[in-house]
Simulated scan of single mutants.
Amino acid sequence: MSHRPRIAVTTSARSGWRIFPLVALNVWLAGGRARRWGAGRPADLDTVDGLIIGGGDDISPDLYGGRLVTSARLDPARDALERRLVEAAIALGKPVLGICRGAQMINVALGGTLDQDAYGTYTASDRVWTILPKKRVEIAPGTRLAEIAGTGPMRVNALHSQAVDRLGEALVVAARDRGGMVQAIERDRDPFALGVQWHPEHLLYARRQRALFAALVAAAGARRRHGAQLAAVDRMAGA
């Protein structure tokens, strides 16, 4: 058996073919081994040590009692799969990293809600739509994200229209943009869960972005050893 923690990565049916290799490379550089999951594919959490919920389609408001905006692009089968996986991963004590849509799915699966028209609500937020790091986010001090990636302002990309609204159970805000929109959330207890509103897989040249994948792999390794995940992440961040 490989010593590398096994990380499942869920992807969009539309863009997963080009996004998964990027995520898999980031996972490999962090010391893990990725496998692609999606609606219609086998998805057994007993076969992996950690989970990444990838970016892509909007999440249906049916999952949290919200209203549907006409611009939403939905994939109900993916919604159902990923909600089940996040709920099960937390119940089984397996760590989760959420990327863009994935951050939103972590929040919804843990009982939170989304703002369907985030830029309509947060009018002072910079609305950019690019894989280039042109958006500035502020990391909340005292959070695990601050330990992992540092406390200074971070330049990230942005490809989203929805954002976290009411927080799910045991989640805290780890970053916001200058308009106040939530840009990262994290779980305050084991198992490790972190969701970022941007796409770190496109920024693998940046040490702070690679650290997000390293944190997940550290937590997944701890889960494999039946150890404390947040403590393992803290050790990784302090190394």
Rank of each mutant, 00 (worst) to 15 (best):
W129R: 13
A39I: 06
K134D: 13
A24Q: 09
L45A: 12
G227W: 11
Y119C: 03
A237M: 12
L110T: 13
K135S: 04
A140H: 07
A175V: 12
G54L: 05
G227H: 09
L171G: 02
A174D: 04
G98P: 07
R155E: 13
A89K: 04
L92N: 13
G55N: 07
A163Q: 00
D58I: 01
L68E: 14
G180F: 11
G16D: 10
D115A: 12
G221L: 04
V196A: 05
G38R: 14
G179A: 10
G55V: 04
V156W: 01
G221W: 02
S125R: 03
D165C: 04
A237E: 08
V69E: 13
A237L: 11
P42L: 10
L230D: 12
T70A: 15
L194M: 15
G142P: 05
S161G: 14
A77S: 14
G16H: 07
D188P: 00
Y64C: 02
A174R: 02
G93D: 10
Q116A: 15
A215Q: 03
L92I: 01
R101F: 07
V137D: 05
T143L: 06
R176Q: 12
W28V: 06
G56W: 00
H202Q: 10
T70K: 15
A232G: 09
W37V: 08
A206L: 11
C100A: 12
Q197W: 02
V96P: 01
G66C: 11
L114V: 06
Q162S: 04
R224F: 07
A103K: 01
R101E: 10
K135E: 05
P95E: 09
V233H: 09
Q116F: 00
A175S: 11
A24G: 07
A175N: 08
